Amino acid sequence: MNSALFVVVLITGITLVAAALWIAGLISPRSFNPQKGEAYECGIPTRGESWMQFKVGYYLFAILFLMFDVETVFLFPWAVILRDMGVAGLISILFFMTVLILGLVYAWKKGALEWK
């Protein structure tokens, strides 16, 4: 019974997605303009070579941002069930925060947060 239900749900999902794509293709406006194929940034046409090196600082800053963004993703569920976890949960999240703060201090000392 479960496998039959799975097949029905799978076929229904595939059919609905295919129908949505087909209807979107039918009613979407069509305009073939050569400008649509050009790459641009901020509406300004590119000049010269578009492949260029960026400073490593941009990547380090992005990685640090992602690290602390992921931290908030982990902190929210923890905050929701804090009372149920007890002291063990508090100690584990304090350890997690300590590791992240040490990482931030290390990046700060190395100058990864400075725009030079």
Rank of each mutant, 00 (worst) to 15 (best):
Val17Cys: 01
Thr46Asn: 03
Gly25Arg: 13
Phe54Gln: 06
Val17Leu: 14
Gly57Cys: 00
Pro34Glu: 10
Gly25Glu: 13
Val17Met: 06
Ala18Val: 14
Asp69Cys: 05
Val7Met: 12
Ala4Gln: 14
Thr12Leu: 15
Met67Asp: 11
Trp22Gln: 07
Asp69Met: 11
Ala18Met: 09
Val7Tyr: 12
Met52Pro: 00
Ile14Glu: 02
Glu38Arg: 15
Pro29Gly: 05
Trp22Ser: 08
Val17Glu: 02
Ser3Phe: 13
Asn2Leu: 11
Pro34Gly: 02
Phe65Trp: 09
Leu10Val: 12
Ser31Asn: 14
Pro29Trp: 13
Ser50Tyr: 08
Ile23Trp: 11
Gly25Cys: 03
Ala18Leu: 14
Ala62Gly: 03
Phe6Val: 08
Phe54Ser: 02
Ile23Arg: 07
Ala4Asn: 12
Pro29Gln: 11
Ser50Thr: 14
Val8Lys: 13
Cys42Glu: 13
Leu60Pro: 00
Ile11Leu: 15
Val70Lys: 01
Val7Ser: 08
Ala24Val: 07
Thr46Glu: 06
Val8Tyr: 12
Val9Met: 08
Lys36Tyr: 14
Trp22Cys: 04
Leu10Asp: 03
Tyr59Val: 12
Lys55Glu: 10
Arg47Pro: 00
Gly57His: 08
Leu26Ile: 12
Tyr58Thr: 03
Arg47His: 05
Gly37Val: 07
Ala24Arg: 09
Gly43Val: 12
Trp22Leu: 15
Phe65Asp: 03
Phe6Thr: 08
Trp22Asn: 02
Val7Ile: 15
Leu26Cys: 03
Val17Tyr: 07
Ser3Ile: 10
Gly37Asp: 13
Phe32Ser: 01
Leu21Arg: 05
Pro34Met: 07
Ile14Thr: 12
Asn2Val: 04
Ile14Tyr: 04
Gln35Arg: 15
Ile23Pro: 00
Ile23Glu: 04
Arg30Asn: 06
Phe6Met: 04
Ile63Lys: 08
Trp51His: 04
Gly48Ala: 05
Phe61Cys: 01
Ala18Lys: 01
Arg47Glu: 11
Thr46Trp: 06
Met52Leu: 07
Gln35Lys: 14
Tyr59Ile: 13
Ala39Cys: 02
Leu64Arg: 02
Met1Lys: 04
Ser31Arg: 15
Asn33Ser: 11
Gly48Phe: 03
Gly25Lys: 09
Ile44Asn: 06
